[in-house]
Design a protein around this nucleic acid. Structure first.
Lengths: 242, 242
DNA sequence: ATAATAGTGTCTCTCAGACACTATTAA
DNA sequence: TTAATAGTGTCTGAGAGACACTATTAT
């Protein structure tokens, strides 16, 4: 590989700042929530004291790829190593960061909080907190993070209509009624039990792992995801009618 | 706005190279085609003489946003000013460009060649050519452009199953049989005329603009797109059966 | 009239919604 | 036995595929 630039004119172009932000979603107390971090209160930093999406500068020495960088940010803030992580998009311009032309690569992650979050694992001392997504949207966030968050919520809600994405928000093993509640929480509307069950089971992405006792009523079958890498696409959207 | 960096340590991080690439699709001779450009044959440049996607460095002085940059690249290569342009994704890593850590923001464009391409408008002297998408995929392309092209084709083909995207490949006014042919070319399979027409007309994104005479047979109604900004999503996928 | 193309009518099949029904558990 | 929850069966309606039918045009 020839590392010596010949067309030095091009390589000496001014380069924009490059960051990676991760929109981290989870279900908490039957609510669809997102993790935010507070910007340092140092007034010389941009947007001091405001809430922002977790993220930061790409480190060309540490990160081999963009995805590596997103995984690192996720781990730093939550201790979570494994989750569903998908590229959301890029936002770049000369106005979005007062420090200069900047591009951010946004990812979104779906994690299950119960088993994974371990505050001792979380690096750094930045303040972080979970917010219901609609509350987070109403806040004034740093940079163009409201726009990015809004795009992430739209993406997730629209995919939830026709994919098995919400399963990645569940702690395994989970039951179909639990999964249905998560679909309902994310979409904000009730669903028919019978149609829901038929759809999930017909899609053939779940594996039964034995009965789970609830505190009340009949025990339910527990399931786990057959393949944790990708979500399954259903043949139709929910609520094709109306 | 405070332009003086306080946390200078962060801003002095080494910054990656940032480029924008555009996958430009069109229909030519009843084929689904993509535009490629040839890398300069100078051996000091990476991938000399290979075919590549049109694109290049972001110019922080000229481009106000990423989209601006994509629009500029599209115009430089084709002279096209208006078309459907959608963000495809980002590819970044320390290995993809021999000159160092680089990130590319990929977009895809759907244009209609007939009315728009004007070679006199095309800037620069780089060689460009249109290839059937499957031929382009089989070539050895520069960088990771085969991967990017493949993602673009997948994205378009999958969206064509449930959106009005192909309408953006048409010169207005067009007829429903012409539009159907484009769907068939992109998807590579025949479709039923009656179901196709019902679907397009029910989706209510077309506006009749009067009969168009073909050379042979009955004249067909001409249509144009009501709203050229976004594609319409159909309630179901084509070929729900099978 | 014929060939060629545009456009319609109608049957069937699949699958989602609605909703009433049965099954299992703990108190 | 009752309350609470899990899970099933069956009807209906919407919409896509299949395909035969009619309509309009140039020769």
């Amino acid at each position: 590989m020839n590392k010596i630039p010949s067309s030095a004119s091009k390589l000496s172009f001014e380069r924009p700042l490059v960051t990676v932000d991760v929109v981290i979603f989870a279900i908490q107390n039957e609510q669809f929530t997102v993790l935010l971090t507070r910007r340092p209160a140092v007034s010389s930093d941009p947007f001091p004291g405001l809430w922002a999406l977790p993220g930061g500068f790409l480190d060309v020495l540490q990160d081999h790829t963009l995805l590596d960088c997103a995984i690192r940010k996720l781990k730093d803030k939550t201790g979570v190593e494994t989750s569903y992580l998908e590229q959301l998009g890029s936002w770049g311009g000369d106005k979005r960061d007062p420090r200069g032309w900047s591009v951010t690569q946004a990812y979104f992650a779906l994690i299950n909080v119960k088993q994974e979050i371990d505050q001792k694992q979380v690096r750094g001392s930045t303040e972080t907190a979970w917010f219901a997504v609609d509350d987070a949207l109403r806040k004034r966030l740093a940079f163009d993070h409201t726009q990015i968050l809004s795009a992430a919520i739209d993406r997730v809600r629209s995919k939830v209509e026709y994919t098995s994405l919400p399963a990645f928000l569940m702690e395994e093993a989970f039951t179909l009624p639990q999964l249905q509640r998560v679909y309902e929480v994310v979409l904000g509307r009730p669903m028919d039990k019978s149609a829901f069950r038929r759809r999930m089971l017909d899609a053939d992405f779940l594996e039964a792992v034995g009965l789970i006792d609830g505190s009340l009523g009949r025990s339910a079958m527990g399931y786990r995801i057959k393949n944790r890498v990708t979500a399954v696409t259903f043949p139709r959207t929910f609520r094709a009618s109306e």
